[in-house]
Amino acid sequence: MSSLEFENLNVWFGDGPDRVDAVTGATFDVESGTSFGLVGESGSGKSTILRALVGLARNWSGRMTVGGLELRGYKRPRAFYRDVQMVFQDPYASLHPRQTVDAVLGETLKLHGFSDIDRRIKTLLDDVGLGPEFRFRYPHQISGGQRQRVAIARALAPEPSVLLLDEPTSALDVSVQAEVLNLLVDLRKERSLTYLMVSHDLAVVGHMCERVAVMQDGEIVELLGVAEMRAMEVKHPYTRHLLEASVGYNPREA
């Protein structure tokens, strides 16, 4: 069964002469329990797809469904937010600087109507590999990797089936990135989560995802499996360019 479906999705900002088409005619689906990667450069519309899905980008047309439920407008039913959660790029910006880890997680749990908050906070911290000593710390008292773990714990709090990951490790050091990616792989296996992941790093997407959509200027230029990507069996010249650039600097390339 497809967990997420996008059909001919258009997203735009502004009106009239100021209109900018951020996404045009995006069509793809994400099978339940799999991991799907959106790659492309900044401005290619990959994050906008995530934002349209959760209702943060209001102007869109086409068809989007989550677990068979068709979405309309920008308002989402409460059940949607239990089912779909997002992890943002920058853990320095996405956590409230004046709230402890306990307050961040507690508030999320309360909003989603859980009653055994104390027990759940303990489990959540445990799930993301943070010890109980982190519970009453402020974001500035923990490292970047630990902050991203808190952000992941917050996303997991309402027990979602779909996680939207917007460049979850691009603000982290490579050794910390490895820890967070391992955590995400483990969590997906344990909870059979569906991931829709946005990244500009093809190696990260290749590690995490089964299928990949390559975006350029708001359009999906190629849909491919990770095996094809690894074997460099790509059709679109832009995908090839991204792959070659991901290996390192090549002075011959223009």
């Binding site: 490579v174 050794s175 490895a178 290749g206 590690h207 990770v226 690894r230 991901s246």
Partner: peptide, 8 residues
């Protein structure tokens, strides 16, 4: 610790 495309 780097993920690699050529060596999954």
């Amino acid at each position: 610790s780097l993920p690699r495309l050529d060596e999954p």
